[in-house]
Design a protein around this nucleic acid. Structure first.
Lengths: 112, 112
DNA sequence: GAAAAATGACCCATAAATAACTCAATAAGC
DNA sequence: GCTTATTGAGTTATTTATGGGTCATTTTTC
């Protein structure tokens, strides 16, 4: 039983994950669903749902977002429609940005 | 070379992940950081950062949140301090909720 | 208070994520 | 236009997450 070398996590991330997990749990209880219910609806195992509600940083973000959506927790505080259009708009904006950056510390040219 | 059986993902989740990835990329470019820069700061590989910016649902949520925080993308539209206090308040609220739910379809008691 | 169900916390086998690398294509700066 | 860094997209070995169980505990309902 080797202790798993977990990835370092900042307080901010920890808090955000804990809050998201709490929101999911609150939404689930609000809909009077059991962990087994929600897990099967989301197509995941009950143990994974428990980890999500606990705010485990190791869960796949896709699964967590699916569960959040299923339980009614909004992502980015946007409804599905709004999120889609917001994404489209943002995509256009992205096209105007530089495709790559170049650090200024390169090409010191100290050969004089 | 077995094609990985990917987990089904809803449009909503897909959009949310794509948006989050775009926000990270935009923030990174805004700070004039290379992918290698941000990846090493976050303590992850460049290939993983690429997947995050692409909106890959398979990335660990802890890693994605860390990168978002590092690049300056706010989570829940809250600053670190606010997030912490919000979490504390929400925790108290959680204590008032029922610890378990019971589905009403149980105990049909059809033995009459 | 009793019965039944839901939850929490483990464990293990397996599937999947991640790091580290390579190489081609693209973009930035002169 | 040329040079060189940056990015995109793969591949493989290794680490880790996930599913599916079990069992004890808590909580609901009667």
């Amino acid at each position: 039983m080797v202790k798993p070398v977990s990835r370092p996590t900042s307080q901010y991330t920890h808090d955000a994950l804990a809050l998201l997990g709490q929101l999911v749990r609150e939404a689930r209880l609000g809909k009077a669903m059991t962990t087994t219910d929600l897990a099967s609806r989301a197509g995941i195992s009950r143990s994974l749902l428990q980890r999500i509600e606990r705010g485990d940083p190791g869960c796949s973000i896709g699964v967590v977002f699916e569960v959040a959506a299923l339980s009614g927790v909004p992502l980015f505080e946007l409804e599905p429609r709004q999120l889609t259009s917001h994404l489209a708009l943002h995509g256009e904006k992205m096209a105007l940005l530089p495709k790559a950056v170049r650090t200024s510390t390169q090409r010191v040219k100290d050969d004089f």
